[in-house]
Amino acid sequence: MKTVWRVFRYLKRYPWIAAGTLTCAILSTLMVIVFPAATKWIIDDVVRANRPDKLLPLILLAAAAFLVQHVFNALRIILNNTFEQRVIFDLRSDLYSHIQLLPLRWFDNRATGDLMTRVIEDVNSVERMLIDGIEQGVVAILQVLIVVSVMFYLNVKLALLALGPFPLLIAGALTYTLTAHRRYRLQRRASSDMNALLHDNLAGVRQIKSFVREREEHARFNRVSDQ
């Protein structure tokens, strides 16, 4: 948890971009309830009540909600991409600066591919967890709250029946979350080994060609890549 809070300070450097991203995500999510509501009103107030004069306003309402949703979604994507690139730059810059200050003996026990994985892949993973994870989590929670509230407002019994599989979904999500950490470590170790081998082979490609070792190195690369 301490590591998360240490990395979380990078988000505090751009509070207005973060607030704008979350605001656009929330506003675009709120438009989700407009389309089902417009459909309900068309069926009840236009078709059943035989009131064609109400059709055009409802269509305009649905079209306006569709436009507002996509405008805020486009703004969210622009702000989110800007936010991501700035945070990635800060993370990589600070990480590279820290690596340069480490003593030489630290590099003796570290493969070059492992360092490349830390600077490139690990930074991207941390950024996705902090920015995309928070944003998508807020949007998902908001969608669930809005939809469940509307469902219970319209029909309590039908809402309870619809939420019957919900405990199974929670159990599946918890199972995946609790086991994902181990799988990610295995994937990261395999990626680090492949990057280390690729770096060594490209740096020593003259020696490989001199000793005609292309076939053997290709087989070794395939074994590491298939882990």
Rank of each mutant, 00 (worst) to 15 (best):
G137S: 04
M116L: 12
L115S: 00
T112E: 10
L130D: 01
M129W: 13
G113V: 02
T117E: 04
E121V: 09
G133H: 12
E121W: 00
D114V: 11
D114A: 14
V123D: 01
M129H: 09
N109P: 02
L142V: 12
P103Q: 03
W106H: 13
V126P: 05
L130Y: 02
L142T: 14
V119K: 07
D108E: 15
I131R: 06
L104K: 11
D108Q: 12
W106M: 08
I141K: 05
N109Y: 05
D122Q: 11
M116G: 05
I141A: 14
S125C: 08
G133N: 13
L104Y: 08
A111C: 08
L102I: 08
Q136S: 14
Q143P: 06
E135Y: 07
A111G: 15
D132A: 13
D122G: 08
M129E: 06
V119R: 05
T112H: 09
T117G: 13
L115G: 00
A140P: 05
E135I: 07
D114M: 09
V139G: 04
E127K: 15
I141T: 13
Q143C: 10
D114L: 06
E127G: 02
E135P: 01
L130F: 14
N124H: 15
I120Y: 09
D108R: 10
G137P: 03
G137R: 03
V123K: 00
L115K: 01
E127P: 01
V123E: 00
I131S: 07
R105M: 06
D132R: 13
L142W: 03
L130V: 01
E127H: 04
I131E: 04
E121N: 13
G113W: 00
L102Y: 02
V144I: 14
D132L: 07
I134W: 03
L115D: 00
I120D: 13
G137A: 05
I141N: 03
F107L: 03
I120G: 08
I134E: 02
A140M: 11
V123P: 00
L142S: 10
A111Y: 11
I120P: 00
I134D: 00
I120V: 15
V138F: 07
V144F: 15
I134R: 01
W106E: 13
E135N: 12
L130R: 02
L142Y: 08
M116P: 00
L104H: 15
F107H: 03
D108V: 13
L115P: 00
R128N: 14
M116R: 07
V138D: 02
L102C: 12
E135S: 10
E135F: 05
D132K: 14
E127A: 09
N109M: 06
I120A: 14
R105K: 09
V119T: 10
P103G: 01
